Measured scan of single mutants.
Amino acid sequence: RKEMTAACTPRRRIINLTSVLSLQEEINEQGHEVLREMLHNHSFVGCVNPQWALAQHQTKLYLLNTTKLSEELFYQILIYDFANFGVLRLSEPAPLFDLAMLALDSPESGWTEEDGPKEGLAEYIVEFLKKKAEMLADYFSLEIDEEGNLIGLPLLIDNYVPPLEGLPIFILRLATEVNWDEEKECFESLSKECAMFYSIRKQYISEESTLSGQQSEVPGSIPNSWKWTVEHIVYKALRSHILPPKHFTEDGNILQLANLPDLYKVFERC
């Protein structure tokens, strides 16, 4: 597991931080080997919608929660590849102030007048994250320049770009939802926020969305749709870069829909 690298990086740093090793061990302890084997050997059937997909393993048909699986995938990559990410360069710098204002204007932020003026909160978020810029760049390849612009994001899987519609809320939550006081809790909560931002979430995906850094293989055609990215990038990574937690067998994120021999018997009677 320590050699797990989802995106190509030129050289690998050895990380011996106790906090990170502890988080890696927790993933191992909570892992479910049968689910790992199923995901490793599954045959992708198709997307139901951005949140759900169908896959077959041996004779069984499964309904998989793409949102939760991708979130767990990105969390584990962030923990196992800690401080070893490439950088996704933004085509132009994104001012943190503008991103924070967009987030505060969104109902998702939960902002009320009692929280104070949005401009003041946005300025605080910019200054707060600028103070964390060195650590964010060093460990997470999340790059913020001296003017308070976001200029780079971590490359977690080759050819995958997170849904940038979720970027404003991500920046807001970096400042408000991460435990910045304790090292282990900081790395864990920061990785979880980043994983949620990178995950496939239906509120940020339309039929026209593209999450891939590449064009489709047909010359002159439109960019790959999110469905292509889910199948050929995300579920491909799920084959080798995730140890599913045991609770996925109990919380409805992986559901067995049918045993195909039983279905064949039904059709034979028709």
Rank of each mutant, 00 (worst) to 15 (best):
E114V: 10
P163I: 09
P93Y: 05
P163Y: 05
I27D: 15
M135S: 04
T210Y: 05
F267L: 08
T229D: 08
L54Q: 12
E188A: 04
R269T: 07
L190M: 05
N149G: 13
C47L: 05
R1Q: 11
P261V: 12
I14G: 08
K227W: 10
I233Y: 14
I151E: 08
A83R: 03
Y80P: 02
L63Y: 06
R11I: 14
V218Q: 07
F187N: 06
P107T: 08
E33S: 13
E119Q: 04
I157V: 07
P168C: 10
W228P: 07
S221H: 09
D115N: 02
L260F: 05
I157L: 08
L153F: 04
R12F: 13
L17M: 03
E72Q: 03
P117Y: 15
T249W: 10
K130P: 02
S19Q: 05
Q214H: 07
P245C: 12
E123Y: 15
L99T: 02
S221G: 10
Q203H: 08
I171T: 05
K118P: 15
G116Y: 15
E143V: 11
P10N: 12
L243D: 13
L35Q: 10
Y235T: 05
S43T: 06
A100Q: 00
F248L: 06
L104I: 02
E182N: 05
N259W: 08
E92C: 08
K130L: 14
F267S: 01
M196V: 03
R36D: 14
T229N: 05
H247A: 09
I233N: 13
I14W: 14
E119G: 15
S191A: 07
T59N: 10
L21E: 05
C186F: 04
T176W: 03
L64D: 00
K130S: 15
R239I: 11
N65Q: 13
E185K: 03
E250R: 12
K118L: 15
G46K: 01
E143W: 12
D262C: 06
H42P: 06
R12E: 10
E113T: 05
Q56T: 04
L167R: 00
H247L: 14
H247C: 05
S199Y: 00
Y198H: 09
G86L: 14
P93Q: 06
L190W: 14
A94G: 02
P219W: 13
E134R: 02
P154M: 00
V266H: 15
D181N: 03
L63V: 07
K131R: 09
L142V: 04
T112K: 02
S240Q: 10
C8Q: 11
F197M: 10
S240T: 09
P50S: 08
L17F: 14
T176Y: 01
W52A: 07
N179H: 05
S43I: 10
M196D: 03
Y62H: 06
E119T: 07
R173T: 08
I233L: 09
K132M: 02
T5P: 10
T9C: 11
R173Y: 02
E72V: 08
R36A: 12
P261K: 11
S189W: 03
G152A: 03
E37I: 12
S240F: 10
I171D: 00
L96M: 07
A237S: 09
I169D: 15
Q30W: 15
N41V: 10
E25L: 14
G86R: 10
D115P: 15
E268W: 15
I151K: 03
K192I: 08
S109L: 15
P93H: 06
P244C: 11
P154E: 00
H32E: 05
N149A: 08
N149L: 10
D138S: 03
W111I: 10
Q256I: 11
E177C: 14
Y204I: 06
P219K: 12
F85E: 11
Y235W: 15
G110E: 01
Y124A: 02
K68Y: 10
G252H: 08
Y62P: 00
L156W: 00
N253C: 07
N259Y: 08
T66L: 03
K60V: 11
E71N: 07
H232D: 13
C47I: 04
E127L: 13
L172M: 04
M196F: 11
R12A: 09
V234Q: 01
L155C: 06
L64T: 10
T9D: 12
N149F: 11
I77D: 03
N28A: 13
L255F: 12
R173D: 15
C270S: 15
Q56V: 03
L64N: 03
T176L: 03
L23I: 11
P117A: 15
V48E: 13
L172S: 01
I233C: 10
D115W: 15
E72T: 06
N41I: 14
I79Y: 15
Y75P: 00
S43V: 09
L156M: 10
G116I: 15
H40T: 13
E147S: 06
S216A: 06
G220W: 14
D158H: 09
S189F: 06
Q215H: 08
K130N: 14
L90W: 02
E146A: 04
E113A: 05
P107F: 14
P245A: 12
N65T: 00
C186N: 02
P245T: 13
L23Q: 11
Y80N: 03
L63E: 10
V20M: 08
E231H: 13
K192C: 08
A175D: 00
E183A: 02
E123I: 14
I169G: 14
E177W: 15
E134D: 03
P163D: 03
L190G: 01
A100I: 02
A175F: 12
I151G: 06
R239E: 14
E71I: 09
G148M: 08
E177F: 15
A103T: 01
F44A: 08
G116S: 15
R12P: 10
L39F: 08
E231P: 10
I27W: 15
F170L: 12
I15R: 13
H42D: 14
S199R: 05
Y62E: 02
N84W: 14
Q215A: 08
C270K: 14
I15Y: 11
E119R: 04
S221R: 11
S191G: 09
F97V: 03
A7V: 07
P107G: 03
S43N: 06
L255P: 04
N41H: 07
L243P: 14
L64F: 10
F197E: 00
I125G: 03
C47T: 09
S43F: 13
G252Q: 06
K236G: 10
P219Y: 12
N159P: 06
Q203W: 11
S216T: 10
K132Y: 13
L39C: 12
K2Y: 14
M38F: 14
M101S: 12
S189I: 13
E37L: 13
E33C: 11
M4N: 12
L156R: 00
N259K: 01
Q56Y: 03
L260P: 03
S109P: 15
S212N: 10
L153T: 02
P163M: 05
I222V: 05
P95I: 02
N179D: 05
E217L: 08
R1M: 14
Y80I: 02
C194P: 00
Y80M: 02
K131L: 13
V48F: 11
P162M: 01
G120D: 02
L150R: 01
A100D: 00
I254C: 04
Q214C: 07
L129A: 01
F187W: 05
T176V: 05
Y139P: 02
N28E: 13
